[in-house]
Simulated assay, not measured.
Amino acid sequence: MKSSIFFSVACFSVEANVRCGDIRFGDPGQFGPVSLTSYPGSGNTWVRYLIEEFTGYYTGSVYHDGKLFKGGFKGEIEDWSEGRVVITKSHTYRPKENALADAIMLIRNPYDCFLSEFNRVISGADHTGKAETKDFMSERWVKNEFEKYAGRWYRLYANLINSGYDTLPIIYEDMKADPQKEMEKVVNFLDVRTDYESKYECLFGENSQRFKRSSGRDVDPYLFVNEEHLKPVNEAINNLSALLKKTHG
Rank of each mutant, 00 (worst) to 15 (best):
I104P: 06
S163V: 15
F25Y: 04
K176N: 09
S214T: 13
K70N: 10
H64L: 11
L223S: 13
G72K: 10
G41Q: 00
H91T: 15
A99H: 03
E132K: 07
P110H: 07
P33N: 13
A236R: 05
L240Q: 01
R120H: 09
I51T: 08
D22N: 09
P221S: 09
S8Y: 05
V47N: 13
S35A: 15
T128W: 01
R94S: 15
K143V: 00
S42R: 02
V225P: 10
F224I: 14
Y157M: 10
F211C: 00
N226D: 10
L156P: 07
Y165G: 09
H127M: 15
V219M: 01
D22V: 10
I161H: 08
G164F: 02
F204C: 14
K181Y: 06
N159I: 12
R217H: 06
N98V: 12
F73T: 09
S38V: 14
E82M: 14
V186L: 06
A177P: 01
V34M: 02
A99R: 11
K231F: 01
G32Q: 05
T133V: 15
A150R: 03
K212E: 10
I122A: 02
V9E: 02
T55P: 02
Y93I: 11
N98G: 00
S4F: 00
S61G: 12
A236K: 00
Y222L: 02
N234Y: 01
R108E: 03
E52Q: 08
G249T: 09
K231N: 04
Y93S: 07
N162V: 06
T88P: 04
R217G: 08
V18M: 07
E97S: 14
N238V: 10
Y222C: 06
F73Q: 08
F146E: 04
F7R: 13
F31H: 06
G249P: 02
F73K: 13
R140T: 14
C113H: 02
I122P: 01
E97Y: 08
K245Y: 00
L243H: 00
T55G: 12
L190C: 08
I87Q: 06
E76G: 10
L203Q: 03
G151T: 12
C20V: 02
T45R: 02
G205V: 07
D218E: 03
D102A: 09
C20W: 01
D79H: 01
V219A: 04
T45M: 08
I23N: 01
L68K: 03
E184I: 15
N109I: 13
D178N: 10
W46D: 10
T92D: 11
G66Q: 12
Q180A: 14
K2E: 04
S3A: 14
D79A: 09
Y222I: 01
G151D: 13
F69D: 09
F224A: 05
K134V: 13
L244S: 06
E201K: 12
S42F: 05
G43D: 11
G26R: 12
A236C: 05
T59C: 13
P33D: 13
P169E: 08
E117Q: 15
K143H: 06
K176H: 01
I170R: 08
S198V: 14
M1Q: 02
R140C: 10
S13L: 11
G129P: 00
V85I: 08
E117R: 06
F54C: 07
K231E: 05
G249S: 11
D191L: 05
S42E: 03
Q209C: 04
